[in-house]
Design a protein around this nucleic acid. Sequence first.
RNA 1: GCUAUUGUAGCUCAGGGGUAGAGCACUUCCUUGGUAAGGAAGAGGUCAUGAGUUCAAAUCUCAUCAAUAGCUCCA
Length: 643
Amino acid sequence: MIDIKFPDGTVRQYNKGINSMEIATSISEGLARNVLSAKFNGKVQDALLPINESGEIQLLTWNDEEGKATMWHSSAHLLAEAIEQLYPGTKFGIGPNIENGFYYDMDLGETVITLDDLVIIEKKMIELIQQKQNFIRSQVTKTAALEYFTKKGDEYKVELITDLPDGEITFYKCGEFTDLCRGPHLPNTAQIKAIKLLSVAGAYWRGDEKRKQLTRIYGITFPKKALLDEYLAFLEEAKKRDHRKLGKELELFTFSNRVGLGLPLWLPKGAQLRQRLEDYLKKVQKEAGYLPVITPHIGSKELYVTSGHYAKYGADSFRPITTPNEGEVFMLKPMNCPHHCEIYRSSPKSYRDLPYRLAEFGTVYRYEQSGELHGLTRVRSFTQDDAHIFCSAEQVKDEFKSVIDIVLRIFTALDFKNFITQISVRDPKTPEKYIGSDENWEKAEREIIEVAQEKGLEYIVVEGEAAFYGPKMDFMVRDAIGRKWQLGTIQVDYNLPERFDLDYVGADNQKHRPVMIHRAPFGSMERFVAVLIEHCAGKFPLWLTPEQVKILPISEKYIDYAEKVLTYLNKYDIRALIDHRNEKTGRKIRDAELERVPYMIIVGEDEENNNNLSVRQQGGVDLGQMSMEDFASIISKEVEKMA
RNA sequence: GCUAUUGUAGCUCAGGGGUAGAGCACUUCCUUGGUAAGGAAGAGGUCAUGAGUUCAAAUCUCAUCAAUAGCUCCA
C-alpha cells in the first residue's frame, strides 16, 4: 500500500500501481470525468501513469493552468493526427500548448492551407475525438527513436531527437499518429468537446529566419462547447477595442501612404489627448527636478559611431543624409541619448550638479521592418518621453527608485493594473551583442535587481533582452488581444558615459565618471496612447478626453440657451461642444455615446425656464436637473481627482 | 524582411467575364422633437496600381503597392 496525500491535507491509502484517474474515481465519478492530468510530488504527469510510491497528489482539471495546458498539448497532437490523415507525407516540427490554446508547425511541402481548409481539418479532428482514442505512452531508446523518424522521413523530429541527451525517449501514440513528446497528455481524446482552429501563419523552423519557414496552425479547444462560445465572444469584444479601429472612429490618428509607412498623423483630437499626457508628465518631472531640453531631429553620423548605435543598427537604419557641398553625413535621430550626452559635456560638471536630469519629448526615427508595423504600437517615427539622469555611482539606486515612483504614479493615474515588471539582462551566450566591460554590466544588473527587491516589485528576469549598452527594467502591458507591449523603461548605463568621455569633479577634486540612467515612463507616446485606447475602450478619463461635455438642445429653439451654457462652462475650462444638428434628442444622445463623450447636457424648455441643466452620464445614467454651478463643480472635482 | 490571406463609395460590407450595389456618413428639403438611429430627395466609385488573356476584365493570370495574422527583429 502507498499513502497519497491530497491538497486539503487528507491522506488515503491505495494499492501500489494505481493511477490518478483511479484515485479520482475513488473520490467521485464527477471528479474523474473532469481530470485531465495530475501533479504528483510537484511534477505534472499523465492521469493514467501508475503511481508506485507514496506522495502528494493534485488532480488537475480545466480549472488548473496545468490542466488546461495538458488539454491543449494533447489537442496539438490531435491536430497533427488530423493533418497526417488529410495530408499524408506532412513532416512535423513542434506542437506546444501556449497561453491561449496551441499550435503545430509543419512542413506540408507545396501544399498551402487556407482558412477554408481549417474548417475541414476541424471536422476531421472532431471525427477523431469521437473515436475516443487513448494517448498511449511508451519509452524507447534514442537509437530506436531516430530510426523511427528517419524511416518516416521526418527530418525535423530527427533533428530534435539528435539534440536530446542520450537515454530513454518518450513517445505518445494517439490513433495512428506517433509523436516524440515529453507529455503529459489526456487519457482520451473524448475529453475535448469543442475545437476552433484560429489562424494559419508561417513560422521559421526553430525561430531561425535563416531556416525553412513552416506552416503554423493555431487553435484552441475546450471541455465544453459553451466555453468555446464564450471565448469567441471575448475575441469579438476585443476586436472592438482595437486601437486602430477606435483611432479611426474617434478621429485620433491616421496614416497615409503618401506620407509613408509607419509614420503616424495625429488628428486634432488625438493630438489634444497626447498633449494632455505630455503636460501631465511635464508637471511631474518639474516636481522631480528634471530640466527640459530640446535637440534636433538629425545628428552627425559620428555621434552615433561614438555611441555605438551606428555599429549596432547603422545597416538597419534609414539611409544617412549627406550635405550637397561638404558631403557631411547625418542620420535621422534614432535615440536622444547621444544628444543629451553632448548637452552634459557643454559645460564642466561638479558633483554638486548631480543628479543632472535632462528631459525631452524627443521624436526619433527607426527603420522598422515593414512586416512589423502595427497601428501606433510599432511605427517608424515616434516620440519618446525621454530623459537621461547623469549621477554618481552612489546616487544610482535612489535615482532609479524615484523613476520607478514616476512610472507607478502614471500607471496608477491611468488605471493600468495588470502590468508586468521585466528586468532584462544580457544573454551570457552572446557577449558580442553588448558593449562595455563585464564589471560594469554585472554592477548595473545587480543594482537593478536590488532596487526591484527594495521597492518590493514583483518582477521577472529575462536573459538576452537587455539593450546593447546596458540592462533595463521594462514595464509591459497587454493590449486588447493579450499581446504584450513594452511601455515604460528604465536603463542603467555605465557605457555611454565612457564612450562620450563624460566626467564631473568630485568633492575630492578628482575627475569621476558619471553613471547614466535612461528612462521613459510612457515609453513612446504613440504606443502608450495605443494601449491606453485599448485599456479604456475609447472611454478616456475625464481629464484626458478631448471632448468632456456635449450640449444637446432639444430643438433649435434652445440653441441660444445652449450657447449660454457653453459660455459658462468654458469659463471653468470645461471642454464642451453643442450639437447644432437638426436631429431628435435620441439621435444626438446616440451619437454622443458613440463618440464616448463622458457627459451629455440636455437643454430644453424646462432647463431654460429654470436656468439649469439636465445631465446624462455616458452609459445612460441620468443625473437629473442641476444648476450650472453644481455641474461645473462636479466636472472640476473629477478632473482634479487624478492629479 | 519571410509565409499566408485580403484590397469595391468617407466608413462597414455584398456582388462578380457583358452599363457598379446596400446600409451608415455627406448635401438639400420636410419635421421642432425629452435620454442610443424621424421622413424624403440628391450627390458620391476608372472596383489598389500596372501588364497579360479575351470580342469584352471590377471579375481570370502575373507583377507591384498596401492592409491583416503570425514568424523574425525591436537602440
